[in-house]
């Protein structure tokens, strides 16, 4: 794995489709940095309905609590990491 030479910022797509989704709503629209990339893993949004899952990269994305909850959060510089499938992420500028 190792450290990436340049921080790669991504924004979680803000879509709200129906169905089985593994991207938590509280992270949609938020900007984070890719901590590491895993996979590819089959897309659970297809597996859940008995379809073959398209293999997708799975990114572990690190967010600050301030980015997720705003400046009034408990401790703004605390962080959160979650695994987000590639099709839920768009390139972004640093927050």
């Amino acid at each position: 794995m190792g450290m990436r030479p340049v921080a790669e910022f991504v924004r979680v797509r803000a879509d709200m489709p129906p169905g089985h989704i593994r991207t938590p709503a509280y992270l949609r629209g938020k900007v984070g940095v890719i901590e590491r990339t895993l996979g590819p893993f089959p897309n659970p949004e297809q597996l859940a309905y008995r379809h073959t899952g398209t293999p997708l990269p799975l990114h572990r994305v690190r967010f600050t609590m301030q980015e997720i909850w705003g400046p009034q959060t408990e401790t703004p510089h605390d962080t959160l990491e979650a695994e987000i499938y590639a099709h839920w992420l768009d390139p972004a500028d640093a927050p």
Binding site: R22, P24, L38, R60, T79, L80, E81, E83, I84
Partner: peptide, 15 residues
Amino acid sequence: PDNTEVRVHDSTADM
């Protein structure tokens, strides 16, 4: 303490 970073891991997918 405030200078200890808390890092939450939300197990959203395969890991």
